[in-house]
């Protein structure tokens, strides 16, 4: 049962943290929460489909289907996170009054709101589908053994419960934060999160031999072990890897570049304006 708790927690944690971050953003920007229901529904159905067709997916493209599909799912989430980051970015570099005006300009328009809702739905549903498909596959092993199935299901419920409460705590921690702090912190976290996901793409491509792995850039296992709780949490939040390959580092840097450059540009603009 403990195995099930840990496995499900690992799978649920990332999606729960992403969901709570985006819900906190919605709360700060006075947006509706209805998108989250749509996202969780699509994500759950998607995860079931991925699990149901797992054989076919794994066999496709000369046995590289699983990795290529994962890489594609990661890419969609990363592009949506970057788009959201670029959209939110101006809010982090304005004075309070200006900020309200910018926010009104961006979010009063239905198209601006719609864009945010759509991005949030894609980010959460794609992340959830990928993560949760593994849960269905795991549980499918126990369908012929009712005793083991019930134990695995109880374990899963506990794991999912812990994951969701961690997500809820994250949500409340962020909603108590002042908006002027929240936006920069939010931007930093989602940028690092996208970087972490891009390392997973590199990993998928190394696994099928399309990219060559080399000696890891560093080994920080002595500092934070990926097996440990802190390691798992950091992995879910910013894609922590204790032994990243050099190519993973390149993917990370390329992914964080757009939002980091946009922030730098806005910061520079703000400086120019305040000096005028």
């Amino acid at each position: 049962m403990l195995d099930a708790v840990l496995l499900i927690l690992r799978e649920v944690l990332e999606a729960a943290l992403i969901l709570s971050l985006l819900l906190a953003l919605s709360q700060k920007l006075h947006l509706q929460f209805r998108w989250s229901l749509i996202a969780v529904t699509i994500g759950t159905i998607g995860s079931w489909l991925l699990a149901h067709y797992a054989y076919e997916i794994a066999d496709a493209m000369d046995g590289t289907g699983q990795e290529l599909l994962n890489a594609a799912l990661y890419s969609v989430v990363i592009l949506s996170v970057i788009a959201l980051g670029l959209f939110i970015c101006p809010l982090a570099f304005k004075s309070h009054l200006e900020n309200n005006l910018t926010q009104k300009k961006i979010f009063a328009s239905p198209s601006g709101k719609k864009l945010i809702y759509r991005l949030c739905i894609v980010i959460v549903s794609f992340s959830l589908a990928r993560e949760a498909s593994e849960i269905w596959i795991y549980l499918s092993a126990f369908t012929h053994d009712t005793e083991m199935l019930s134990s695995a299901l109880i374990g899963s419920a506990i794991g999912a419960g812990i994951g969701m409460s961690l997500g809820a705590s994250t949500y409340y921690a962020f909603t108590f934060m002042q908006k002027s702090y929240f936006i920069p912190v939010f931007l930093a976290i989602i940028t690092l999160l996208a970087g972490g996901l891009s390392m997973q793409i590199a990993k998928q491509l190394m696994q099928i031999g399309w990219l060559d792995s080399a000696t890891p850039l560093w080994d920080s296992t002595f500092l934070v072990d990926e097996h440990s709780w802190v390691g798992e949490l950091l992995y879910a939040l910013i894609g922590y890897d204790s032994r990243p390959a050099p190519i993973q580092g390149i993917f990370y840097l390329l992914t964080i570049t757009p939002v980091v450059s946009a922030c730098a540009w806005h910061a520079w603009q703000l400086r120019v304006k305040t000096h005028e």
């Binding site: 794994a58 596959i137 990993k203 190394m206 696994q207 890891p216």
Partner: peptide, 15 residues
């Protein structure tokens, strides 16, 4: 730095 699901009765390749 590898992880891959291998379904029952299936074969997987990992580099």
């Amino acid at each position: 730095n590898r992880e891959k699901i291998i379904m029952g009765g299936a074969k997987a390749i990992i580099f």
